[in-house]
């Protein structure tokens, strides 16, 4: 087997795994946008906030310690206990649900029926506010998050795929990161669970109804407020999962919130309202940017990953503005 094909395949697989993570972040956007027409600029910061909260709970950090110490002249910082990852995750989920409720109760409930641009502005405000709260609660230092997901290359896969080189001396088998593998599996489970939830439960049905038509949803007895809290909670949960994956890989710090920027081209590609669009779009961007970097990067001096996704999405947008799975919009005249 020729080198290019083998390494190209490896790049492809790595791209798929990166793509799953992009899809996950994009999914958070799609959920909220579909149900309420809000483009949630704060989605990335929610992931950061979730990861910081999870870390803080695990290491037993006292929330708002700085504030408390400054006010009361105390010197507290840790409770002195550690909480196992699983329990900490459950507690973080509860925090994210609480956050969803607060956001709905104190912000968006008062903005029902406002222009989309106003709602968007509100989420920008929310993003910076939440970032500030996160720093105040847990401190702005870089944290390493370890919830027990194995890291590093999988030797098992490397050894067991070496034969595919069919005698090629340069090939030692596919190099895949265990963390990426785990992330892929978890993201896949999450997506399936979300689909089952929305298809087969009362709340899921109500969610779809609200996404389709507010007025009709009201008339069949659906409580819009609680559905919106539910949607923000699910988006918060998705943010937590993305935060854990990204945080385990690259540490928990401000740049984690920039994963939202990776989701934008995915949304341009997949459409803002399509769950399958977010998934397929994520995979296309993930694979596309890795393959492009592999094939063209060396010729142009690398760093194509910064812009490739946006250019691809832009080209796509010109030819299919409705996204991958949207129906063609024909203006009525």
């Amino acid at each position: 087997m020729p080198d290019a094909l083998l390494f190209g395949t490896e790049v492809f697989l790595n791209g798929l795994m990166a793509g799953v993570l992009y899809a996950l972040v994009a999914l958070g956007f799609v959920l909220i946008y579909k149900a309420s027409g809000i483009f949630n600029y704060a989605q990335g910061v929610m992931a950061l906030f979730a990861a910081m909260t999870l870390h803080g709970i695990m290491v037993g950090q006292v929330p708002f310690a700085h504030l408390i110490n400054a006010t009361f002249g105390t010197h507290i910082h840790h409770f002195g206990w550690e909480i196992p990852a699983l329990l900490a995750i459950v507690l973080t989920v509860i925090v994210m649900i609480l956050l969803a409720w607060l956001v709905q109760r104190y912000v968006f409930r008062h903005l029902v029926g406002q222009e989309p641009i106003i709602l968007f502005m509100a989420t920008i405000g929310l993003a910076y506010f939440l970032e500030g709260v996160a720093d105040l609660m847990w401190g702005s230092d870089i944290k390493t998050l370890d919830v027990g997901i194995p890291q590093g290359g999988s030797f098992w896969i490397e050894e067991n795929t070496q034969w595919m080189g069919m005698g090629n001396e340069n090939f030692y088998g596919f190099f895949l990161d265990k963390l990426d593998l785990v992330a892929t599996v978890i993201a896949a489970i999450l997506v399936v669970a979300l689909v089952l939830f929305s298809q087969y439960t009362k709340q899921g049905r109500a969610m779809r109804a609200v996404a389709d038509d507010h007025q009709a949803a009201l008339s069949v007895g659906i409580r819009l407020n609680s559905i919106w809290v539910l949607v923000w909670s699910v988006a918060g949960f998705v943010a937590l999962v993305a935060g854990i994956m990204w945080g385990s890989k690259s540490g928990v710090q401000f740049s984690l919130s920039l994963i939202a920027l990776k989701a934008l081209p995915v949304l341009m590609l997949g459409g803002f309202t399509s769950i399958p669009g977010a998934i397929v779009g994520g995979l296309i961007i993930g694979v596309g940017e890795k393959l492009f970097e592999f094939a063209v990067g060396p010729l142009v001096g690398g760093a194509t990953e910064n812009w490739f996704a946006y250019v691809l999405a832009l080209i796509f947008l010109v030819f299919r503005p409705q996204g991958l799975f949207g129906e063609k919009i024909i203006e009525r005249v």
């Binding site: 109804a209 038509d213 007025q215 009709a216 009201l218 008339s219 069949v220 007895g221 409580r223």
Partner: peptide, 20 residues
Amino acid sequence: KPFQVAQQGIARTFQNIALF
């Protein structure tokens, strides 16, 4: 709220049709 009225056994249709 409309959802509470609906739960009391009052259903409705709209002049401008509100379907899913």
